[in-house]
Computed example of a mutant assay.
Amino acid sequence: AHGEDIVFPEHPLLVTGSRDHKIHVWKLPILQEDTVGETTFDSGESENPYLIAVLAGHTQSVRSLSGYGNIIVSGSYDSTVRVWDLLDNARCKHILQGHQDRVYSTAIDYSKKVCFSGSMDSTINIWNFETGELLKVLEGHSSLVGLLTLVDEVLVSAAADASLRIWDPVTGELKSKLREHAAAITCFEHDGLKVVSGSEKQLKVWDVRRGEFARDLLYDVTGSVWNVSIDYKRCVAAVQRVNRAGEGELFLEILDFSESQQN
Rank of each mutant, 00 (worst) to 15 (best):
G132H: 03
V103H: 03
E180L: 02
G3T: 03
G37H: 04
G37M: 02
W167P: 05
G98A: 05
C187Y: 07
G198M: 09
A158W: 05
W167A: 08
G248W: 00
L65I: 15
R19P: 00
D207C: 12
R179H: 08
P29E: 10
L51P: 06
D191Q: 08
K136Y: 06
D121Q: 09
W167F: 08
H58Q: 06
R179Q: 15
F213T: 10
R91G: 00
L178G: 07
N89A: 14
E253Y: 14
V208R: 05
Y50G: 03
L174S: 09
P169S: 09
P9R: 13
C92M: 09
S122P: 00
E173M: 08
E200W: 10
E200R: 14
S64V: 11
F251A: 10
Q202P: 01
D220G: 05
Q261H: 11
K194H: 12
Q60E: 15
V54Y: 00
E253R: 14
E133V: 09
E130A: 07
T40F: 07
E249F: 00
S43V: 13
L193Q: 15
P49D: 09
V205K: 10
H58V: 10
N89G: 02
T59M: 09
T222N: 10
G3N: 02
K177S: 12
R82N: 12
S18R: 04
S79I: 00
T149A: 13
R241I: 08
D161A: 06
G69S: 12
I126E: 04
T106C: 13
I185G: 08
L86N: 02
T131Q: 04
N89M: 04
S64F: 01
L51Y: 04
G17N: 07
E180Q: 15
E130C: 00
I30C: 03
K93N: 13
Q240C: 13
V62A: 06
R215Q: 14
L174G: 01
L252D: 01
D207P: 04
E153P: 00
I72T: 10
D231Q: 12
L203N: 06
D101R: 15
V36L: 13
V242K: 14
F116A: 02
G98H: 07
V228R: 10
S61G: 00
E247P: 00
L65T: 07
C92F: 02
T106R: 03
R19A: 10
Q202D: 11
N263Q: 12
G140E: 06
S119M: 02
W84K: 11
G172F: 08
L135K: 15
A182N: 13
V83L: 06
S143D: 15
P12M: 06
L252N: 10
I126A: 01
N263C: 04
G172M: 09
V145N: 06
A245K: 15
C187P: 07
D101A: 15
L252T: 06
A53T: 01
